Structures are given as C-alpha cells and as structure tokens.
Amino acid sequence: MSLVVFEDFTIAAAAAVLKLTPGSAKTRMHRARQRMKTALTGTHYVPTPITVLEGERS
C-alpha cells in the first residue's frame, strides 16, 4: 500500500516490484483500504446473513 499511496506507484508497477500479479495487488490494496477504514472509523464490517426459506434451497 505504501508504494501506491506514498510513492505514487500505479498498482501495476507496485505489483511488478513485489512480484505479484496485478489482480492480487489490487486485491491487497482493497483489503488494506478496508482495514484502514475500520481502524479510522472504529466500526466493524459485519456481513448480513443470508436467510434461506424452506423450499428455496438449491
């Protein structure tokens, strides 16, 4: 994250430096941003449970 945020690397360039695929670098950036948002706001992400009604199971 620091390469992209502080050093102005593109995600693709940071991926090359870290020997990652661009997709995995993008995923890591997304997760880092989620963790930072949680740390700054003090909130927790709680996924909404999926309710399956009787007869709707696949």
Rank of each mutant, 00 (worst) to 15 (best):
M1P: 04
M1S: 12
L3P: 00
L3F: 03
V5R: 15
V5C: 14
F6D: 11
E7T: 07
D8Q: 12
D8C: 14
D8Y: 12
D8K: 14
F9E: 01
F9S: 01
T10R: 04
T10L: 04
T10D: 04
T10C: 05
I11H: 01
I11D: 00
A12G: 05
A13S: 03
A16C: 01
A16W: 00
V17N: 02
V17D: 04
V17C: 05
L18P: 00
K19G: 07
P22C: 02
P22D: 04
P22F: 02
P22K: 04
G23N: 10
G23T: 09
A25M: 05
A25N: 01
A25C: 03
A25R: 01
K26W: 06
K26I: 06
T27W: 09
T27V: 12
T27I: 12
R28Y: 02
R28K: 04
R28D: 00
H30D: 05
A32W: 06
R33E: 13
R33I: 14
R33W: 10
R33D: 12
Q34A: 15
Q34G: 09
K37I: 14
T38L: 15
A39L: 11
L40S: 13
L40Y: 11
L40H: 13
T41G: 13
T41K: 13
T43L: 07
T43E: 10
H44C: 11
V46N: 11
P47K: 15
P47G: 14
T48I: 14
P49F: 08
P49W: 06
P49E: 07
P49A: 06
I50H: 08
T51D: 02
T51S: 03
T51M: 06
V52R: 08
V52G: 05
L53V: 13
L53G: 07
L53M: 14
G55H: 05
G55T: 05
S58A: 11
S58N: 07
